[in-house]
Design a protein around this nucleic acid. Structure first.
Lengths: 198, 198
DNA sequence: AGATAAAATCAAGCGCGCATGCTGGTTTTG
DNA sequence: CAAAACCAGCATGCGCGCTTGATTTTATCT
């Protein structure tokens, strides 16, 4: 055959990861069983067991996959940002917020919260979260063209990211977009002030 | 006996709720089984079943208990706040943040995240969250002596609360207090500026 | 090159452990 | 004596991990 099974294997593995991420975002931690994920991916449970020996392997793999996908999407979107001024700041904040209210974050949230009580999972997840956090911070600084040497700038950006995280958390309880909009707008104004003062 | 069983019943019920909250905060959603909670409360599983027919009843009750306890503690702590000026603003922000990094919030977080994929639980939990959110916002406005008619004031306070929520979320992945402190300090400065400008 | 061994991929079934909910029975209170 | 609070055991269901077996691809030897 022209298609080596190596490719096919990678494909099913990827389908499993995608299905796991979707399942986590939709059905939550307890609702994400290997059987359900396997069925959603269109493979048997044995196949899933082969690629990911344990459930924890599957979940951790899904989180890693979601993390990297998130970063890639960010880079793509960063190129489409508007010019300068306040509208750019607001656009950046909106983009950061969108990261934390999207499906990838919802999936990650389930894993993080579950990992807080699961030492073994925590050990695998914590470095991923740290890496993602640093990466997003770096992106934020770059897109805002911020000078972190100015006092307060770094802290305010960190606070902005934490606010976005808070939005993400609020979103799991229900659609929050209407409440978010004016807050983001006001926050962008304040942030622009901090960035440009003096 | 001098102690009517009504009191004893209320007492065991309360012990169950306390144990459930602790268990949620420590062992997470999946780790909180009725058997474990009952043992921690010092009662048999059958007794727990008697007071809370279903597990969902127990969890929902625990969340409600945690919510009210949280509000009561807030009122107590609000009386001990310092005088005026920036230190007061910083103290208020610190107090708000402490709400979201405390054990009650950790317990609530587990329930909220789980409820996002459980419609039946979601229906019972969502109004609680809304009530708590409004209450905390009200407390914040009052303690900051903010004039919400001023443009941007209301939005900035909401953003502050969302940032605090984000801190709480970051805390489940590991102790974050060292990172938080400078952010809170800086944000208090900014918040004071927004509150007092013009 | 051809054949056979070895390894990888996928499918299906089994058993263990555990949590929930229910039911019957016992003690305490009014 | 009636009712409520409390306790012990049973039964069902389900998710996980493991084992077995079939099919395909890759590697090795003659």
């Amino acid at each position: 055959m022209t298609a080596p099974q190596q490719e096919r294997s990678k494909a099913t593995r990827l389908r499993l990861l995608e299905a796991a991420v979707d399942c986590l975002a939709e059905k939550g931690w307890s609702g994400t069983t290997v059987a359900i994920v396997a069925r959603a991916a269109g493979v048997s449970r044995g196949a899933a067991q082969h690629h990911f020996p344990t459930r924890e392997d599957l979940i951790a793999g899904a989180l890693e996959f979601a993390t990297e996908t998130q970063l890639i999407e960010n880079r793509a979107r960063a190129a489409t940002l508007p010019e300068h001024g306040l509208t750019r700041v607001e656009a950046v904040v909106n983009m950061l917020v969108d990261i934390y209210v999207g499906p990838y974050f919802r999936a990650a949230l389930q894993v993080w919260v579950a990992a807080s009580a699961d030492p073994s999972l925590h050990a695998r997840v914590q470095p991923l979260e740290a890496r993602l956090g640093r990466a997003i911070h770096h992106v934020a600084v770059e897109l805002l063209r911020a000078d972190e040497r100015k006092p307060g700038v770094r802290e305010t950006i960190q606070g902005t990211l934490d606010m976005a995280r808070g939005f993400g958390l609020a979103t799991v309880l229900g659609d929050d977009s209407a409440r978010r909009r004016p807050i983001v707008r006001q926050w962008a104004r304040v942030l622009a002030g901090v960035l440009g003062e003096q």
